[in-house]
Design a protein around this nucleic acid. Structure first.
Lengths: 197, 197
DNA sequence: GTATGTTGTAAGTGGATACTTACGTAACGG
DNA sequence: CCGTTACGTAAGTATCCACTTACAACATAC
């Protein structure tokens, strides 16, 4: 009887813009007025698509994680024989670390960590990220290495820490690009292998 | 001619309270009204001690870093012979990780990273933290190991990442206390040793 | 004692901000 | 073609917050 609901399409259209705004400005400074302006609409248009600002932020985190996950999955599928999948991931991130601004969204979220919804979104995101890396470690080491789930999980957290500190030190201008590449590439391989037995 | 200026004492008295407030609430949500209430004074009393809210935050970061640094220095001085200083630090942090809330202040600061003053304070803090750890690594490995400054610096960043991710995953409830201890203790030792040669 | 500067109390201000309401318009289905 | 519903624009509101101002009480140096 009336115009068909195109809310989903519009959400998909605005999400990259919202994600970029939150990544650039942080949660508080990304005001709803600013968000609307960047989307080239009025504020209430955004409020028709999401119940509140928090929901926009949570959706942005989801969106950016999906983007990263797709890139990694593609990287794993396009199997070159020169290196193991895990090493290919490391080499890729050595050069493209955080290109979607995922970490800046995480930083923005961490300062709102007391909010249950934001906390939940971060938990989910970190949980999936960690699980993905842990699987890569298990695959890399192979069944005969005797690596326990526990050991792989801990090594995976260390790798996540590597990515996090690489982003922080880059944001603060405390590390050069070659150092960052060595940090991820070399230290990443060290963590990948583990302590040998 | 008048009352002597006791500003320094008062700043010292308020700083721990401010640091705790910023750590608990984050930068934006720690309003000046809240800060004043926790210090049991009016807002303008704080504004007589610091020019603005940013200066209070920067001072809080300094304060908390000093606290942590003093604890570590004491730990190094009280030399037990059972383990190397670096290992003692790791073991200590395995149990007392982030007890002064330094990381929560860092998270609060990271979302305000575009502000030059806050960025500067974080830079300084991270720089000194990293330098301290790097020195521990150099001392641990010894001159005969052939470890370059570069290698020690990169390993030190990895250790900082370990602490960072340990705090994040703890905040998000994604890691248990024993796992955290192994993450810092075991993986910390792996990074301390490096790749063997 | 008194001039001088410090400390405490109380109230306020200007601006920002998340979110809402009201209303005109246009597109689709029957 | 017409009723229903989505969509766009504009204005508004209530609240919050960093920071200020005005002023009284008080302690010290001389």
């Amino acid at each position: 009887m009336a115009k068909p609901d195109q809310s989903d399409e519009r959400r998909g259209q605005f999400l990259p813009i919202l994600a970029r705004a939150f990544a650039e400005l942080g949660y508080r400074r990304a005001t709803t007025a600013e968000l609307a302006q960047r989307c080239d609409v009025r504020e209430n248009v955004l409020y028709r698509l999401w119940p509140d600002k928090k929901a926009m932020f949570v959706a942005a985190i989801e969106h950016v994680y999906q983007l990263s996950a797709e890139v990694w999955a593609k990287l794993l599928r396009e199997g070159e024989t020169t290196a193991s999948p895990a090493e290919r991931l490391l080499d890729y991130e050595s050069d493209h670390l955080g290109e979607f601004g995922l970490y800046r969204l995480v930083f923005a979220g961490l300062s709102e960590i007391d909010d249950p919804q934001i906390r939940g979104a971060l938990r989910k995101m970190y949980g999936r990220f960690h699980k993905f890396i842990r699987q890569q470690i298990v695959d890399y080491r192979g069944a005969e290495s005797g690596t326990t789930e526990q050991e792989a999980a801990i090594a995976a957290w260390a790798v996540v820490g590597l990515g996090t500190v690489a982003n922080i030190s880059r944001e603060l201008g405390l590390i050069t690009a070659p150092q960052r590449r060595r940090l991820i590439g070399d230290t990443g391989r060290l963590l990948l292998k583990g302590n040998g037995e």
